[in-house]
């Protein structure tokens, strides 16, 4: 996958944001009793018990699911949050969960946690290939007033320093994350929106297809990295 997508130089190793974080942040992620994300996971368990479990049973049965998300379905990329809300609205007949709300962050963190330690392995074959290609094109597109692409920072300059911080490769294997900067939990979308705002580019809507393509590409690019959900980042 690495070779056929030509994403990273052969000599470059994939590094999770965890590998580039300081010892304190890593220790916080390593200890479930010190990781504040588990406060959200606990809320996610309550959500799971109020309907999800009726069909899916114990949440442990979701092992492996987050590792293969997002998926391509009916011509679009569907991520875990969209799947949860689709399930709620179409099958449970209850209201969709608010994006970035505690219930949604909690239940996606809970589902992600079931795949912790498994390798990220999204399906990029068949109809997915076109979405991955569009996602990669977006990743390499220079945009915003700063005229920067994702790739310029997170590929070419990854490992170097930006102010006091190490520039990470920008993988998506730990979302949703507890970010110290946010003093709370947030989704991959929140992170991407911050990046787009940072380079002063147009911010895409949460459900725009291109963002789904980017999310699928990021997962393909991070294939083989271990799922860390719920991660902790500075």
């Amino acid at each position: 996958m690495l070779v056929c997508l030509g994403l990273l130089g052969a000599a470059e190793e994939k590094r999770s944001g965890y590998d580039d974080a300081g010892p304190q942040v890593r220790a916080m992620q390593d200890d479930d009793l010190a990781n504040p994300a588990f406060l959200w996971v606990q809320q996610g368990a309550a959500v799971w018990g109020q309907g999800c479990a009726d069909c899916h049973g114990a949440v442990e049965g979701m092992r492996g699911v987050a590792a293969r998300y997002p998926v391509v379905e009916r011509g679009r990329v569907v991520n875990l949050e969209q799947r949860v809300n689709e399930c709620r609205v179409e099958r449970q007949g209850v209201a969709a969960l608010a994006p970035e709300g505690e219930a949604m962050l909690g239940v996606t963190a809970l589902i992600g946690l079931q795949s912790r330690g498994m390798a990220v392995a999204v399906d990029v074959s068949g109809p997915a290939a076109g979405h991955v290609a569009r996602g990669e094109a977006f990743f390499r597109l220079r945009q915003g007033q700063l005229n920067l692409s994702c790739a310029q920072c997170h590929e070419q300059l990854a490992g170097q320093s930006l102010a006091g911080a190490r520039i990470v490769q920008g993988h998506a294997n730990a979302y949703p994350i507890y970010r110290l900067e946010w003093q709370g939990m947030g989704s991959l979308f929140r992170r991407l929106r911050a990046c787009l705002t940072g380079v002063r580019a147009e911010v895409l809507g949460r459900d725009e297809g291109l963002l789904g393509d980017l999310e699928l590409f990021l997962a393909a690019r991070g294939a083989g990295l271990k799922v860390e959900t719920p991660g902790v980042r500075p």
């Binding site: 009793l33 010190a34 504040p36 588990f38 406060l39 003093q183 709370g184």
Partner: peptide, 9 residues
Amino acid sequence: VRILIQHAM
């Protein structure tokens, strides 16, 4: 004894 409390502080 270890405790983690959800609060925006």
